[in-house]
């Protein structure tokens, strides 16, 4: 996974979001699918929706860490990458070529 490639929500305007406590359910206009995201995946998607132009992986990790109030952001790298793979599999996000 290239750190130079920005990750972005596939189409931020097409994604409707409902958040309840730690739960996130999203509807994607582009696919017509509804997804119940794992809590961490939800945080990652929200970070990308807040930054429609996209985020490089280190920026994304920093953003999620700030949301979760975790000072050592690098410990989140493996779980962020795992969440990115899952969100990409659901066609909610994409990685733009560098």
């Amino acid at each position: 996974m290239s750190e130079a490639s920005p990750w972005r929500a596939v189409s931020p305007d097409a994604i409707a979001v409902r958040e309840w406590d730690e739960e996130l359910v999203v509807y994607n206009d582009c696919t017509g699918h509804t997804h119940h995201l794992a809590p961490f995946g939800g945080k990652v998607l929200l970070a990308l929706l807040d930054n429609p132009a996209g985020l490089e992986l280190p920026e994304l990790i920093e953003s999620v860490a700030a949301t979760l109030q975790i000072s050592e952001a690098e410990v989140l790298a493996p779980v962020v990458e795992e969440a990115l793979e899952e969100l990409a599999r659901l066609d909610l996000i994409a990685c733009d070529p560098a």
Binding site: W20, D21, E23, L24, G32, T34, H36
Partner: peptide, 18 residues
Amino acid sequence: LSKGSTLMQLVESAFNYS
């Protein structure tokens, strides 16, 4: 039951959601 899980159950049970 969590609201997220409930929403997914209603989606599954809907005839014309899509």
